[in-house]
Design a protein around this nucleic acid. Structure first.
Lengths: 340, 340
DNA sequence: GCACAGTCTGGAAACGCTTACAGACGCCAT
DNA sequence: ATGGCGTCTGTAAGCGTTTCCAGACTGTGC
């Protein structure tokens, strides 16, 4: 393996100068720099990542912890973060926690603590006190996306407010019989948002003087399939059918649309459906939604971290509100005439 | 920061013995081992990842290069690989190449070569000669998923055979007017599979004596949205409509189903549609498909690599065929009676 | 009682960089 | 000339482990 020593030899410089020339830190004469670079590229030399990290204390590596890359929102965040990191010359170590509790634990106990990342991004994870303490113990900046992380900087959207906005969109069209598809309660632990979105829904309904019917609040697991099943229940047996459904995520809204179609309900003529997210399928499905720019959130998290890393600023525990945008498509309309 | 030295001191042992005790390599008396472990846990000590890697040459880190985690197949592979790696105590460094050519280049030029990973998994990437040379230059085992990588071990499905099998399923039901949605030609460069699947389709058609109509072969970008648009063209203007569509991926099949519905076509009564993949939405959409177990492929790739790493066996350039499974659901049936 | 293999241990040399430090040099103002 | 300053460079001391090596100690077979 060719090392920096070989480069130095070939360039007729000292190891130190070569190191400075290649890293751009410290002053090096233009001539030396050119010689060093030439020698390096002639030898096909690349710095040893671990040696650099060990010597400098910088890993140029960010840990990203997500519940599951297989879900739309998370993979979008990963894409956004990944591109921003790549751009900055940082590596991305992915911790895909999955459903396995043991995996989750080992990520926190064994992986995250080994001083191998400069910073951590935790997506939609409600961390236990213990987990948080461990994270803080490594003294690395942490930013959370999509959920509050005590003591860490957070990027998120105002879930209550946008749930309200979404509900108001339906109310504004004249709907009063509005159902809500929320997340399973168990998810509140980890992802936190079902509760806040539901709250926004209920507030908006109350403000409008519309009753919130308990039987019209059903829960699913945030997937298309899960919501499809839940929506079938919602739309099938009820003595009375809602004229609109507000789902807590686009994936669940899409599941609802599919279920509605199965019942022969036309969207939006017979029933209006909307979600929250900005899912890629929104266009094809004609889904009205509130776009929360998941990629942008990933990228912003990276920029925030990188800023803290390079400035050496100890990341303040700030809460950044990410902008959202109501996108009206064809899945929502005024309620059918006969449904007063 | 507490180092191994502190642990040694506290345990009354030498650094060397502590290192052996904690790593489990070399012989250490049970008593010493216990003392070392106790001291380590009392101090909350964790090994420095970089120092270990530098000294041992093992990084315990695998690089995973994918076109985009945002796409179904790739994220499934990532999930499978991630779980297997976590289990084995390995980190996963994700290189999400994306559409940006500069990113792709920097991944190969700057990132992958830094002796940072013990092995590389490349998913559905047709690498250039240059890229491959660079990969081989780092002397790490490489496995490719979903595409042939000259000189590397590969895990994949027999695209031609399963495309044939899929087509035969439709032919077996009595269809003769079968359309095919393939990938854009440009994708052949990177992902390779549109061509092979199309070949399988054509072979099956030929063998059955059915004409392949050029106007019934349309291409899309492997996304639901893309196929939706392509399928609208296919199903709209034609003087004659196919009675079945075989899409080269489930996502494209789903797009086709959505397009068919928009035209008021009932699936499968008016038109049969099937894909390849084993997409999560398959169930909800009632999609007939050939399941290729993407997660399993990711996990298998990891097991293959880890075997090579631990044995020190220089991974032979073998081609492992991953099993697939025809899953018949409700999107395929015999052709409508009036369509002879 | 002795040689020998086997187990356990510590010292110290890597691993391949970064960076503090100090020296060498040129240049300017004095 | 002289001092001071800034730029450039090399020497060498880390960074925190792993692992080679040799030594110390056991127990065994003779």
């Amino acid at each position: 393996m060719t090392g920096i020593k070989d480069v130095a030899e070939r360039a007729g410089l000292s190891v130190a100068t070569v190191s400075r020339a290649l890293s751009g830190k410290g002053s090096v004469s233009p001539a030396s720099r050119a010689r060093a670079q030439a020698a390096a590229s002639e030898l096909g030399f690349v710095l040893s990542y671990h040696a650099s990290s060990l010597a400098s204390g910088r890993t140029h590596n960010v840990g990203l912890v997500v519940p599951s890359v297989h879900r739309w929102f998370f993979s979008a965040v990963v894409e956004g973060a990944s591109a921003a990191l790549l751009e900055a010359g940082y590596d991305l170590t992915l911790y895909n926690i999955g459903e396995n509790a043991a995996h989750r634990q080992s990520v926190f106990n064994d992986f995250l603590l080994r001083k191998r990342v400069d910073a951590v991004i935790a997506v939609s994870l409600e961390l236990s006190e213990n987990e948080l303490r461990q994270l803080h113990a490594v003294h690395r900046p942490i930013v959370g996306i999509g959920g509050p992380l005590p003591g860490a900087s957070t990027i998120r959207i105002d879930d209550t407010a946008i749930a309200r906005q979404a509900t108001n969109h339906l109310l504004g069209l004249g709907h009063t019989k509005i159902a809500h598809i929320t997340g399973h309660e168990a998810y509140d632990q980890d992802f936190h948002l079902p509760g806040t979105r539901r709250t926004g829904f209920e507030k908006a309904m109350n403000d409008a003087g519309c009753p919130v019917r308990p039987e019209w609040i059903v829960s699913a697991d945030f997937t298309i399939e899960g919501a499809y099943a839940a929506a079938r229940q919602l739309l099938a047996g009820a003595p009375e059918r809602p004229t609109a459904v507000f789902a807590a995520s686009d994936e669940m809204a899409i599941g609802t649309i599919l279920a509605a179609r199965d019942f022969g309900l036309r969207v939006p003529d017979d029933i209006s459906i909307m979600g929250i997210d900005g899912h890629d399928l929104g266009n094809v499905m004609g889904l009205t939604t509130i776009d929360q720019d998941a990629k942008g959130q990933g990228a912003l998290a990276v920029r925030t971290l990188l800023g803290a890393i390079t400035n050496g600023t100890p990341l303040v525990a700030a809460d950044t509100q990410h902008p959202t945008r109501l996108v009206v498509r064809t899945s929502t309309a005024v309620p059918p005439a006969d449904a007063n």
